[in-house]
């Protein structure tokens, strides 16, 4: 058991001065940003949109088989940081990313690295379900086909079924695989998008407010799914629902004005956060 002194005194994280040197204005993160078994390792990440710095020297690990939730007020940089993890920000004009982001010790910003296969390894689920205007089957089959993951139709059929099963959608759609994905309900469409992400064998799944457009029942189904997916994948989720962060994640990171203020075990963050900004945000005293 931790001693009183350990718990009373806020601990500065394990970021070294060198990690933080790349950003002049970043604040030291409270809590340990590292995990014993990381899948992704981010150190001193800065993001600029033109002259405006959106992320300031953020360091954070995403461990294997864990769900990390990222919370914070609008504009705090949590979605920007999430999009750095599979180079989605590359598509934004004037966006510049510095620092180090590694997937299994490979620098994902290495000039020679093709971002297309990276985005299969680090898949993304967006706020609004965005199925392709194709059949349910084709929504899933498209990714494996372009990445050459299967050799024949039978293998592809298997992969479609497996992916839909993992996304908890198979039983609901197995008899109408040829119907348009856009004809499904919002919750089903989101699970279809998750199945599409799973189909290309990712290591990490990024979720940007995946339930914000869904009703409570569909949200509960997605949350249950997230818990099941954790067994096979690392998951980073951005959410505005603190109850959702508390329910689905093992670790929580709190962002504020581009800084990673605090990171820790979700239970600790929601019962005894160490930083005043975190406490003010999660208790509704913000702003």
């Amino acid at each position: 058991m931790s001693t009183m002194a350990e718990v009373i005194e806020p601990t500065a994280g394990t970021i070294s001065a060198a990690d933080l040197a790349s950003s002049q204005h970043s604040r030291a993160t409270v809590g340990d940003v590292t995990v014993a078994d990381p899948r992704m390792t981010c150190r001193g990440v800065d993001v600029w949109y033109g002259a405006k710095q959106a992320i300031k020297g953020v360091s954070l690990d995403i461990g294997k088989h864990e769900v990390v939730s990222m919370i914070g007020p609008s504009g705090c940089g949590k979605s920007t940081f999430l999009r750095c993890l599979n180079r989605m920000n590359d598509t934004i004009d004037g966006c510049r990313v510095t620092g180090s982001i590694k997937l299994d010790d490979v620098d994902i910003y290495d000039a020679g690295l093709d971002p297309v296969p990276l985005r299969a390894q680090v898949g993304m689920v967006f706020q609004k379900p965005n199925p392709f205007p194709k059949s349910i089957y084709e929504n899933i089959a498209y990714g494996p086909r372009i990445h050459g993951l299967t050799n024949n139709k039978a293998e592809l059929d298997d992969l479609v079924e497996t992916s839909l099963r993992k996304a908890g959608l198979w039983e609901e759609v197995k008899d109408r695989l040829d119907q348009p994905g856009t004809g499904l309900s919002g919750g089903q469409q989101q699970r279809l998008c998750i199945a599409r992400t799973i189909a290309v064998s990712p290591e990490v799944i990024l979720m940007d407010e995946p339930c914000s457009a869904l009703d409570p029942i569909a949200t509960a189904i997605i949350e249950e799914l997230i818990d099941e997916l954790r067994e096979h994948y690392s998951i980073a989720i951005v959410t505005h629902s603190m109850q959702q962060a508390a329910r689905v994640s093992q670790r929580t990171a709190y962002f504020h004005l581009g800084d990673l203020i605090e990171v820790g075990e979700t239970n600790d963050i929601f019962t005894n956060p160490k930083h005043k900004l975190t406490e003010d945000y999660i208790t509704g005293r913000f702003g």
Binding site: M242, Q243, F270, T271, N272, T278, E279, I282, T283, G284
Partner: peptide, 9 residues
Amino acid sequence: HQPTAVDLR
């Protein structure tokens, strides 16, 4: 209010 942190305590 689903209290958290100090409010929950």
